[in-house]
Each structure stands twice: as structure tokens, then as C-alpha cells.
């Protein structure tokens, strides 16, 4: 079976500083992978490279065997990569319902969208997402007026509506209360299996709740990879977090 996402020797050079430096990993279909690493390890940059926000200087990204390295963002998105940003990124002047409606993006061309309304199947999918994210009570509220947690769920809901095959989540619980974090974990766990997820997260309690396999990055490189329990015992990982500098 072809892996959902293959990262092969990926590298980016910011004028001499290599934020991601020869990173490789393989994420299988339906897997939920958590990426850990101290500040500056290159986790967010890795997501930028996968989603096309930043152009890599070496290496390859393959989505279900298809090369998508350094394509324009919208093409990578059309290929099946969905991305959630650290700071919630939703359409603030549109209602929640309209946000989800825009996320039905399987037909992205201008002229094909010159029509009112959408297909029944798309509407049904939106209903499912509304149910999953619990946004029913705020459907007609403009997204800019939502609480922080609701905004994050809306963005998650948009990625699901988009039918992204691989979803990149950058700190989905940042700034959330305990209850909100727990609900987010529930949503993410329900996506496992049907979607392939790559999650960057700092909240260890949250990571323990959702993680199976964990990838640890340090100085732009792969440091360790394996089941959560094993990773927590790994001396190299401990050193990296404690900053002993003994990893290189």
C-alpha cells in the first residue's frame, strides 16, 4: 500500500540557516501522527513545506505516491492536503454556515461556481460536519464573533468538509480551556482512520490522549520515531528537551 504522506530528505535553507534539514518520515493511510519537538525544532516549518507555504530547497514530498513538492498552495490543497493554522484562520465576515459552504471545494474553478446553491450530497456532508463539531447553535453567527474554541472547531470542520485526505494540524489546542481541549481530542479521534492526520502539539496530556506513533524533531531533523510510551523513555529525546546539547 502506498503511504499517505512521504517526506523524503526535506530541507529548507533560510540564508544559511536550515530550519528543516534533511527530514524524512512516512505516514500511513489513516494514521494519526503527532510531531513533537522543542521550540525551533522545525515543526511548523515542516508543515509550511508540505502545504506549499514555503518552498523547500531540497528533498521531496509525496502524497499517495504523487509528487507535490513546491507546488502552489491551491494545487497542493486540491491534491488532498488540508491545513489548520496555529492562529485560527476562518472567514471572519462570513457566517459559520457560509464558511462551511466555501469549504466544499471539490469544484474550485470560477466558471463552474457561477451557480446558486449546491448539490444535495454536499449539503448532507455539511450537516454531518455540523453534527460532528457541534456548531449547530452558531450556524448563523459570523465567524469573527465565535469564541476561540468554536473558531478552532470551525476550522477543523472546514478541513473535514474539504475532504482533505491528509490533514495538517498545527497546535489545535493552543489557548483552549481543558473542556475545549477534551472536545477537540474527541473530534480528532473520530477522524482517525478515515483521514490521515499530522498533528503538531505541545500539550502532553492531549498528546497522550490522541497519539499512537510519535515523531520527534530536533534541529530540523528526525530525532526519534515510535510509540508514545517508548519515545517518553528515549534518552535522546529527554536530552533534546532538557537542552543538554548532547544530541548532535
Amino acid at each position: 500500500m502506498v503511504a499517505a504522506l512521504t517526506i523524503d530528505g526535506l530541507e529548507v535553507d533560510f540564508g544559511g540557516f536550515k530550519a528543516v534539514n534533511g527530514m524524512s518520515t512516512v505516514i500511513n493511510r489513516g494514521e494519526l501522527r503527532v510531531v513533537l519537538g522543542p521550540n525551533g525544532a522545525g515543526k511548523t516549518t515542516l508543515m509550511d513545506l508540505i502545504s506549499g507555504k514555503t518552498a523547500s530547497t531540497a528533498g521531496e514530498v509525496r502524497l499517495f505516491g504523487r509528487e507535490i513538492t513546491n507546488r502552489p498552495e491551491h494545487q497542493i490543497a486540491r491534491a488532498g492536503v488540508g491545513r489548520k493554522f496555529q492562529i485560527p484562520s476562518v472567514f471572519r465576515d462570513l457566517t459559520v454556515r457560509d464558511n462551511l459552504s466555501v469549504a466544499v471545494s471539490h469544484e474550485p474553478r470560477v466558471f463552474r461556481n457561477l451557480r446558486l446553491g449546491m448539490a444535495a450530497a454536499d449539503r448532507a456532508r455539511i450537516e454531518e460536519v455540523i453534527e460532528l463539531t457541534g456548531l449547530e447553535p452558531v450556524l448563523d453567527v459570523v465567524a469573527g464573533d465565535l469564541s476561540h474554541g468554536q473558531m478552532q472547531w470551525l476550522e477543523l470542520g472546514m478541513l473535514i468538509t474539504q475532504q482533505a485526505k491528509v490533514i495538517l494540524l498545527d497546535e489545535p489546542t493552543a489557548g483552549m480551556t481543558q473542556a475545549e481541549t477534551s472536545k477537540t481530542a474527541d473530534i480528532i479521534l473520530r477522524l482517525k482512520g478515515s483521514h490521515t492526520l499530522l498533528v503538531v502539539e505541545h500539550d502532553m496530556a492531549f498528546v497522550r490522549k490522541i497519539a499512537e506513533r510519535v515523531t520527534v524533531m530536533h534541529m530540523g531533523k528526525l530525532l526519534a520515531e515510535g510509540p508514545m510510551a517508548k519515545i517518553e523513555q528515549d534518552p535522546a529525546v529527554r536530552d533534546a528537551y532538557l537542552g543538554s546539547g548532547g544530541v548532535q
Binding site: 502545504s51 502552489p72 498552495e73 491551491h74 490543497a77 486540491r78 488540508g82 491545513r83 484562520s89 476562518v90 472567514f91 471572519r92 465576515d93 462570513l94 457560509d98 464558511n99 459552504s101 466555501v102 469549504a103 471545494s105 474550485p108 474553478r109 470560477v110 466558471f111 461556481n113 457561477l114 451557480r115 446558486l116 446553491g117 449546491m118 472546514m158 474539504q162
Partner: peptide, 28 residues
């Protein structure tokens, strides 16, 4: 009022989000 009109408004609010949903913002 068409979907294209709605997508256009989305590019006004947050062009990056529209791009990551797969829309070619410049085309709109």
C-alpha cells in the same frame, strides 16, 4: 449570490485560507 460570489468574499476575508481550501484566489 452564486457560489463564486461567496468564494470571492472568502478570499477577501482570508486569502490564505481560500488557497488552502484549493481555490486559486487570483483567478477569482
Amino acid at each position: 449570490s452564486t457560489r463564486a460570489g461567496l468564494i470571492l468574499q472568502s478570499t477577501r476575508d482570508d486569502p490564505n485560507r481560500s488557497r488552502y481550501l484549493g481555490y486559486d484566489v487570483a483567478a477569482y
